[in-house]
Amino acid sequence: MTTTDTLELRMTRVLPATPEQVFDAYTDAEKQKIWFSILDETPGIVEITVDLRVGGQQTAVWGPDRDTLFHETQTFLVIDRPHRLVTESSGGGPDGSSMTTRVDITFEAVEGGTLMTIVQSGFPAVEVRDFFGQEVWVGALDRIEAFLVRQ
């Protein structure tokens, strides 16, 4: 039997920048506004606010148009810049779906840049976890990497 406690996703990517630069790209609202849409052919909607302190929140709303918006609120549980970030993430999509997960990210200096390791747990179903592993995080990491390379 699988429970949401056991539905964990673990991903890694080496990004071409220092841990400080990667941490800041991931947590700074103005930088996020750039990388959220850096690979899009047509600009969409990206609205982000960040209160980067334990207990603070990051709120993001994004999508191709006002009728197709995704939303996420992350509450910061642990902030150890530039080494680790832990959040509780609650979000949903235009179809009305929603979920809450825990996201634990580490940033480790390695040859060639920073090893970013994401561990996300609490998925409601294997299919949702796999979608995040194959689509959501891959897309986010591709965008962050493109942002870092262009800086």
Rank of each mutant, 00 (worst) to 15 (best):
F131V: 12
R81D: 04
D40N: 10
I34A: 07
I45R: 10
E127Y: 05
L7E: 15
D28M: 07
W35Y: 03
D28R: 07
G96Q: 07
Q151S: 12
T49K: 04
E127L: 09
L39Y: 01
G56A: 02
F23C: 02
G96K: 12
H83Y: 11
I45N: 04
F36K: 08
T6P: 00
L77F: 01
G44V: 00
G63A: 08
L39F: 01
E41T: 05
L85A: 07
W137P: 01
R53H: 11
Q32S: 03
Q74L: 15
V119M: 08
G139H: 04
F70Y: 15
R150W: 01
T18N: 12
T117N: 11
P124M: 06
F147A: 14
F132E: 14
D51E: 15
L141R: 01
E88K: 08
F23M: 06
V78N: 12
T59G: 09
S90M: 09
I105C: 03
E108K: 12
T87P: 00
T114C: 07
F131Y: 07
E135D: 09
Q74M: 15
V138N: 13
I105R: 13
T114V: 11
E145M: 06
H71V: 01
T100A: 05
L9N: 12
A125G: 04
V54M: 10
V54I: 10
P124Y: 03
S97E: 13
L69P: 03
T101S: 02
Q151L: 13
Q151G: 10
Y26D: 06
K31S: 08
T101V: 15
E41I: 00
Q32M: 15
Q32H: 09
M1A: 10
Y26L: 12
I38D: 03
E20Y: 15
I79L: 09
G139V: 04
A29Q: 07
D24S: 10
T59W: 11
Q57K: 15
